[in-house]
Design a protein around this nucleic acid. Structure first.
Lengths: 149, 149
DNA sequence: ATACAACTTAAAGCCAACTTTAAGTCAAGC
DNA sequence: GCTTGACTTAAAGTTGGCTTTAAGTTGTAT
């Protein structure tokens, strides 16, 4: 079962031009062509494209993804390198998760800040607010800010 | 207590040119100048710059951050808009967290895949591996892939 | 056989977010 | 007062990741 670039793009929810760009960048060396030169995607190509999407969402640049692809094509001698790259990226995802948690706490604080301000009709309500009226979870946040200055 | 752009950049671990760029883009309208035109950062400027860094790490484009900055300067009439923006960004962070979890599962699977292949000396070890030798947590992942094709 | 949508390429264009360059100014130490 | 390093601006350059354009080809439906 084969798919044209348009069909595959629809399945993956990307533009056909994106897939052509990936191909040009050497990320899709496995894609076959018809006698007339039309790209023919197979079901199994999805696996790699899904992986590619995941790595991209993990913040890996296309160049590195291409390196990974190249190693995969070189066979079993590159297993170690591929494992290293995966572990590096795994660590990067863990770091990003930690970062997002910090960001979420900050956004939760700001949300509370503006909800309170909205009820009061003014941000001035926060000017002289005693510490014990600030929800507990936000207190370390304010402390940390002071400390770092 | 004032800091030059170089000192502030060091504190925030960014390049001075980045802070100048942010200033040019209207993200730092509060920064004072010496009589000679040198930027003089105050301790309290850190708060906004830290927030800016957080929003950036949450994937908010500089244009939107500037909008937020502009609203802040307009006073209490824009509290609602600011709250909406914060909530929108909060949702975006929640979505990103979900995305990173999926990506982490995929990376964990790949890590196991290459660790196993490394021990066996070849990726071929996975070709005919029965489902019950694949760690449980990765099985739904493989099922899902099949389904989507 | 012809029309027509979807495919092909190479090259140029675009956007965000910086970074670099060039030419000049400021200010602290000698 | 002079040197020197850090600052100033405007403008141009860079990078990554596409998207668009232009000119042409393929393949399916009638």
């Amino acid at each position: 079962m084969f798919y044209t670039i348009g069909e595959m793009a629809q399945k993956l929810n990307v533009a056909p031009s994106t897939l052509r760009y990936y191909d040009k960048e050497g990320l899709l060396p496995f894609v076959e062509r018809s006698s007339g030169g039309i790209r023919m995607f197979k079901d199994e190509d999805m696996d790699w494209l899904r992986m590619l999407g995941c790595l991209k969402k993990a913040g890996m640049p296309l160049k590195e993804i291409r390196t990974f692809m190249d190693w995969s094509r070189q066979g079993d001698t590159t297993i170690g390198q591929r494992l290293d790259l995966i572990e590096k990226q795994r660590q990067s995802v863990l770091d990003q998760q930690k970062q997002l948690e910090d960001t979420l706490l900050m956004l939760d604080y700001k949300r509370w800040y503006y909800q309170t301000a909205q009820e009061a009709g003014t941000c001035a309500v926060h000017d002289a607010m005693p510490l014990d009226q600030i929800p507990e979870r936000f207190r370390p946040l304010k402390e940390e800010w002071k400390k770092e200055q």
